[in-house]
Design a protein around this nucleic acid. Structure first.
Length: 480
RNA sequence: GGUCCCGUGGUCAAGCGGUUAAGACACCACCCUUUCACGGUGGUAUCAUGGGUUCGAUUCCCAUCGGGACUACCA
């Protein structure tokens, strides 16, 4: 690894913790960071933040990588924090030697008790001032208790230096931020020998040369603590951009997208439902860069990589996940694809999950996907493959129609002249010939559509009849 | 409770002291089409409230209210 302490940082990264599932926000951060890396000729790397042993999930990294691969997210480097324990320990111990950190033997019970009395006294909670009991333990006592095998953590000593009134910095998306310095001595090394996020983040992003730490808004306040840690370590302070988080509305209140309650929070759920991956990417880009839609309208077929991501256009509001908007983007993404492309996507999707699917029906669906496609004005009726069962239900052999609304005799008359061999013009001409005036024609066309498909709006009827074949069409026309 | 962030139509938003306050989604109407769509045109609807500053505030300042985040040996 290069020594980025002495070289110019040129890295962008995502740092997920391995839960096994990739959250929409993680893909969003991956997107933003890969754009920034590409535009600034920097590296884009992955860091697995697995310092929480309680959260360990088997195969989590592999599962996440599958999702990243699916989205063509490529990393220049990959780091795993649990493999770097020695590095963090080294820095933490150096801090102790310098008096900038200390061993703390307080137990969970001690801490709970402390918090209770603080609350009772109306004081701020935390490990500070007179409550920071382990700050001034003698070296002998520390040595003795460690030798005795007492569990301990290392805490940074934030009383070591005067931080001034405020910790100020320029957030790349939000501008000047002035935070109160933190007075609590944070744990920087847990009793299991791994650091919590704070120390690992500061050391890794410094050593790995992160040019801009792009992370969620929820980290904004703790930036003061992270900068104080940089100062103690003698590192230059890192640069940050805090991104809005995607919310959802529930009972009139906003809350973060949750992977338990909101299926759209997990990108693979969206893919499993049959949304195109580019819809996810485009939606995320519209959320995180207000320029994107304008660009897309002006360049409907340009590759996404041509878009210039602009930090100035990153919002500061936390947007609501807008399903209708997302659906609209999905429709447009599918509509832009060629027949071959969409069929390939359909085949890659788990089409077996469609109810009562048979090889015959699958073939019909594949043909259906080509109807009214490829021209200047493609049809936009497909949002996600999952909807096919309903949207194209007439491709299955059974359809349900309220027969009372149909004129059976008229349909039988038409059935007699219907010929699957007719081209579209002939086919339409025959229908026209059956109707003396416009209202009748309108009605006849509607009836045929209803009888054949069970729906009032479908893609091109002639094409559908071609796909179904002579026998099925005639059978459906003559059963009323 | 404390600290920080945010507040333009139903949603996402442009705007950065003087604008008829863009655009997209959704919704409605009409046009195109002797069918369904696609497409086109138009419409409904927004600067949270109250004070300042200013010749003039959506824009700057303050307060209030509202929403969100953080306040762990989780990230």
């Amino acid at each position: 690894m290069k020594n980025y302490l002495s070289e110019k940082p040129d890295g962008y990264r995502i740092a997920p913790s391995p839960t096994g599932y990739v959250h929409l926000g993680t893909i969003a951060m991956a997107l933003v960071n890969s754009y920034l890396a590409r535009q600034n000729h920097g590296r884009f790397y992955l860091r697995i933040e697995d310092t929480d042993s309680k959260r360990y999930v088997a195969d989590a990294v592999e599962k996440m990588m599958t999702t990243f691969n699916y989205f063509d997210v490529k990393f220049a480097e990959t780091y795993v924090q649990s493999e770097r324990a020695k590095i963090y320990q080294q820095y933490a111990e150096d801090l102790v030697k310098q008096g900038k950190a200390y061993y703390c033997f307080c137990t969970e019970d001690d801490l709970n008790q402390m918090r209770e009395t603080q609350i009772k006294n109306g004081e701020p909670t935390g490990y500070y001032g007179k409550y920071a009991k382990c700050r001034h333990l003698s070296p002998d006592e520390v040595a003795r208790r460690i030798a005795a095998g007492e569990p301990h953590v290392i805490r940074a000593n934030f009383s070591y230096q005067d931080w001034g009134e405020r910790i100020t910095f320029t957030d790349a998306a939000r501008g000047e931020i002035a935070l109160l310095p933190q007075t609590n001595d944070p744990v920087i090394m847990k009793s299991n020998g791994l650091p919590p996020y704070n120390l690992a983040h500061v050391i890794d992003d410094t050593l790995m040369g992160t040019a801009l730490v792009v992370r969620g808004e929820e980290w904004l306040i703790s930036t003061a603590e992270h900068m104080q840690l940089c100062d103690l370590l003698g590192f230059p302070r890192l640069h940050y951009m805090h991104m809005p988080t995607i919310n959802i509305e529930e009972n009139g209140k906003k809350r973060k997208l949750s992977k338990r309650k909101d299926p759209q929070a997990l990108v693979m759920n969206l893919i499993d439902a049959g949304y195109p991956k580019n819809a996810i990417i485009e939606y995320l880009l519209t959320i995180y860069n207000s320029d994107f839609e304008i660009w897309r309208t002006a360049n409907p077929n340009a590759p996404l990589t041509d878009f210039q991501f602009s930090i100035q256009k990153v919002g500061t509001n936390n947007p609501l996940f807008d399903l209708p908007k997302f659906n609209d983007i999905a429709k447009n993404v599918w509509a832009r694809q060629s027949h071959a492309e969409i069929v390939a996507n359909f085949n890659a999707w788990n089409w077996q999950s469609l109810p009562n699917i048979t090889p015959t029906i699958k073939t019909r669906i594949e043909k259906m996907l080509g109807v009214e496609r490829g021209g200047e004005r493609p049809r936009k009726d497909l949002i996600k493959f999952e909807d096919i069962a309903d949207l194209y239900s007439y491709l299955w052999d059974e359809i349900t129609v309220d027969g009372s609304t149909l004129d059976g005799q008229m349909l039988k008359n038409y059935a007699e002249i219907y010929d699957a061999a007719d081209d579209k013009d002939t086919w339409w001409q025959k229908i026209k010939n059956l109707a003396p005036d416009k209202p009748t024609l309108r009605n006849l066309a509607a009836q045929i559509r209803l009888a054949v498909t069970g729906k009032t709006n479908t893609p091109d009827l002639w094409a559908i009849c071609q796909i179904l074949g002579n026998d099925i069409v005639k059978a459906r026309l003559t059963r009323w």
